[in-house]
Nucleic acid binder design. Structure first.
Lengths: 333, 333
DNA sequence: GCTTGGAAGTAAAACGTTTCTATAGCCGGG
DNA sequence: CCCGGCTATAGAAACGTTTTACTTCCAAGC
């Protein structure tokens, strides 16, 4: 419980607290001899700077927030890895918030981040209400959107083209000869789900079919378990020739349920997922998917955020849009 | 940038700052009428409490740290989900640190947590140096070990019996008739890897074989990619009849490499992993594994930590040891 | 020899809370 | 009518830093 403060260090080294602070923050401003004496005192006493006091006085912290929709989804894990790498390179700590798809929980998390006076927030918003994010900005907290287009011009965003992804996925299924396609999606409150559906419809239309024929099955969550349930529903209602899932977790669940029911993939039904998580390649029938530059998404978003924080004058807001890539595997052979 | 402070709220509501603080922290102590007036002022002005100031004055924060070895491993993700759920139920924020297996990085993360004056730390230590954790305790930061036995009696720990797990896994392989077994492990600096090996040796010995015959292949990281490489080495050196992998990520990599080389699983080689991550059941050949109560690990560790923080007087330190469970699937049929 | 200027360090104020002590107002009992 | 004992609130100090303005010292320039 030895609360060693900057004063103790100062006394021990025979200097004033201000000088210790200078050693910590602007070592160039203090004479080498004194600096060494102070550093020795710091080590001897086991001094650890009190971050809150520092934040309070300096008016800003070296912490950023990361709010994701589902920490159990490898997609977000990989984003988080990219974020963490950049943040720790630049000496920032990351506070993680998992909204679990609930706007309420997301709100609570954002409030916690606001109270911590984080420098900035990286968020994959689960709803479509920009007002909450604007409120953060009013408190001087920068916001960068991850896997989501910008709400406004004076804001950075890093996204992947979901309409194009949905189109490419379904075009691939149709090119294999499928005439009836089902879309298994998560909640339609999630933007990605909506846009991938729009892309899917566009592909159906482009093939000269009726986009209204795209059968949409909405699962409550984007998990493998929900995928199994969706597959059961599809089987009960009569299977289409091909299934497009809004993410790989759903697709893996669908695949498991289909195989358990004796449905052959891809012979009876072709299947494609989205995200190309590592496990897609390793699954029972290896899963076709739409690959996204996930780790890069996290890295670049963090670089943008920290640039905005550290160089507010020269910072130029950017809207970055990646293109997803089709990875064809056994499930659509 | 409107920095609304407690003083502004006080002025707006016609009370003193102390009263506003009471409304925030001990609403019972203030008359209903005044409370309402203050709450109205808070909403009207969009006041957000400055966490750093609060932490500084109160001497403690409502934040805990979580330090894991590999955030990309679904095992830790699920632990993190348990941690996050409990923490957010009790109004705590979680700062996540990913050591990526490097003790250096872990040290840096712990330093960040110490500076933030987190209330406590949950950690799956990547090395075996208790001194660093003791240093945290000296700063008044409680520590609970996750998936690791306690270093000392006055400390909580939640672990799973890795020796028993290793023994059960290899006993299962031997019961299927395998005479030669290889152990594909991560770095031997990781305790889990060592103990699972001890268990494996015990099982070999119990079967009347020479424990020295357990072939050990050490991978640099516990990832699927490292597993693929380990499998290549095994193939080059001559395959055993069965392979036990220290976790499912390694096992999935081994499986992928074996199948690609035309080795049949389980006909030519039986394979078992560890952790029973979700994807084990969904893989090409469904993977046998040792299941651990992962989510519970995170939940219980957090409950212990927060109990230690919130009720230091009545808190009783606990060492909890779960038993893993064998899940047999196709890969060991 | 006197000024000027710079380097090195000190002293004190400030950041926004929480918490302790003090005080004002009120009620009921004697 | 007064006083003890409440409750509700005010006021001020303190938490550990950072930062600004200031002092001291010394060397160089004239």
């Amino acid at each position: 419980m030895a609360m060693v403060s900057i004063k103790d260090v100062a006394a021990h080294a025979g200097v004033s607290p201000g000088t210790v602070s200078n050693v910590l923050n602007r070592p160039g401003k203090v004479a080498p001899a004194t600096r060494e004496r102070v550093e020795a005192a710091i080590n001897e006493l086991g001094f650890v700077r009190h971050g809150s006091a520092s934040t309070l006085r300096a008016g800003h912290s070296r912490t950023i927030g990361l709010s994701v929709i589902d920490i159990g989804n490898p997609f977000f894990t990989e984003v988080a890895a990219g974020v963490e790498d950049v943040a720790s390179e630049l000496g920032y700590a990351v506070i993680l918030g998992n909204s679990a798809g609930s706007p309420d929980k997301e709100d609570r998390n954002l409030r916690v981040l606001a109270e911590h006076r984080v420098r900035g927030v990286l968020i994959t918003p689960s709803g479509e209400d920009p007002a909450r994010l604007d409120r953060l900005r009013e408190h001087g907290i920068s916001v960068v959107l991850v896997d989501h287009p910008a709400h406004r011009p004076d804001q950075c965003a890093v996204a992947v083209d979901d309409v194009a992804g949905g189109r490419a996925a379904v075009a691939h299924l149709l090119a294999r000869g499928a005439r009836s396609v089902a879309y298994v999606t998560g909640p339609m409150t999630i933007r990605q789900c909506v846009e991938r559906r729009e892309g899917a419809k566009a592909a159906v239309r482009a093939a000269g079919l009726d986009p209204g024929d795209l059968r949409v099955t909405e699962a409550a969550t984007m998990t493998a378990r929900a995928g199994e349930k969706a597959a059961a529903d599809l089987i009960a209602a009569g299977l289409p020739e091909a299934i497009f899932c809004a993410n790989d977790l759903l697709a893996l669940g669908v695949l498991r349920a289909l195989l358990r029911s004796g449905v052959r993939v891809p012979e009876d039904v072709a299947l494609i997922g989205y995200d190309d998580i590592d496990f897609a390649a390793a699954s029972t029938v290896s899963l076709s998917s739409m690959r996204q530059p996930t780790y890069q998404l996290g890295r670049i978003a963090t670089e943008l955020l920290l640039d905005e924080c550290d160089n507010p004058d020269t910072h130029a807001h950017q809207h970055i849009m990646f293109q997803p890539e089709l990875i064809a595997r056994e499930s659509t052979h």
